[in-house]
Design a protein around this nucleic acid. Sequence first.
DNA 1: AATCATCAGATTGTCTGATAATCTAGGGAG
DNA 2: CTCCCTAGATTATCAGACAATCTGATGATT
Lengths: 231, 231
Amino acid sequence: MLNTLNTLPRPKTRDLVAERLHAYIADEQLSPGDRLPTENELAAMFGVNRLTLREATKSLEYLGVVEAKPGKGLTVGQLNLERVTDLLEFHPDLRDASPLALIRTRVIVETGVLPFVADRMRAEPLLHAQLQEINDQLRRARTLKAWVELDIEFHRLLVEASGVTPLLAFNQLLSVFFRKFRDSVKKAEWKTGIVSHQRIIDALKRGKVLVAEREMRRHIESHIDRIDVVS
Amino acid sequence: MLNTLNTLPRPKTRDLVAERLHAYIADEQLSPGDRLPTENELAAMFGVNRLTLREATKSLEYLGVVEAKPGKGLTVGQLNLERVTDLLEFHPDLRDASPLALIRTRVIVETGVLPFVADRMRAEPLLHAQLQEINDQLRRARTLKAWVELDIEFHRLLVEASGVTPLLAFNQLLSVFFRKFRDSVKKAEWKTGIVSHQRIIDALKRGKVLVAEREMRRHIESHIDRIDVVS
DNA sequence: AATCATCAGATTGTCTGATAATCTAGGGAG
DNA sequence: CTCCCTAGATTATCAGACAATCTGATGATT
């Protein structure tokens, strides 16, 4: 028997089933919560054993694409970004990314969204109040944990406010990697961070996008000083 | 019975097993190709049935994290980013992202990396030749398919050349969404795209980063004209 | 009549056991 | 020594069963 034909991975039934189920959800444009056929029905549809079908659905369920509850059945679920993030740790581009590259990524993303934030702020005054509120809470933070959570929320809100939602998802994906830096922040550095935030807020409100960008760049790049300490 | 207590998802054994296996690979710093214990051994280790363990490993295998071959056993695999990308279609921030938001994302990312590309180009002259070569091939492209592939490669190489690897991974994740735009390009528009590419290359070589950024912005935003046609 | 408890059916979760397909390694023939 | 080929190991798939859990209907109580 020719082995060269067998070496290229023969498609496994459960993967085919998973892909067809994936396509089914996409084609029918099903939304989270919509019912799917039962395991037995799906197994019959695809002409496979129920266990084979289960291994396919469980592959999709692990990332939240489908949801299964005993007695209820299968429904379409919502993608679990946290799981995706955990998986991305295995990707060379991210796993081996240098701290400097991560900081540069943040600079590009978070300065890039600022012009849109400024635009949205002009149309939606509430935005300024929200950002100000978070920064005020940051001033009152007493523990590192509380400070980190609020700092993340501040930056998340900025990206969200821009309306560039793909970058919001990306930021969420990278949050695990960024958290390392924040956890190494010393209490003395909180204050300077809060001052930077305030300058950014004020500049955005006044429509001074370039000023906000410059301040944001400085704010994020301040982490560079701690890279040698961390790694 | 209080239903509010049951609604929070009770941890399922196979997901716990999958996470522990994931952690095992990470903790042992295993690389693609490294052997894992057999299904029976792992099942015994985690104290679950072999089938339950299989549903866990298959979840990871679908995404490429582990690989299984009959007669051989389980090995560590390489993350299948294509699978992950396909699943990202289910994330609201990406699925419901407007074409305008996607274009803005590309502008932010691809103009953001240009300063670093310019730096790298000064140290590595070969880079300019590579970009030039791709653009020359673009001139010779005869089919839309060939043109699209080369266009993707041109932009991918730019991001890669910047050394900001996280953004390279992100661009790959978004490639599915970007491809929609490229597929709607008319042949008459190829030429203007190639001219833009050339201007970007030339500006980068001369170290004129701002010029390159402006040209890149115009180049990508030119897709806006076709949004109404597409959607 | 309205509300609550309970039960039956449906559905997924997990287990036991078995067979087929496939690969690895070692022994035997040349 | 080289090549082929068999035996064992390992995953792939299937079949059947029982437990856990939810939904909805049925009946009892107030």
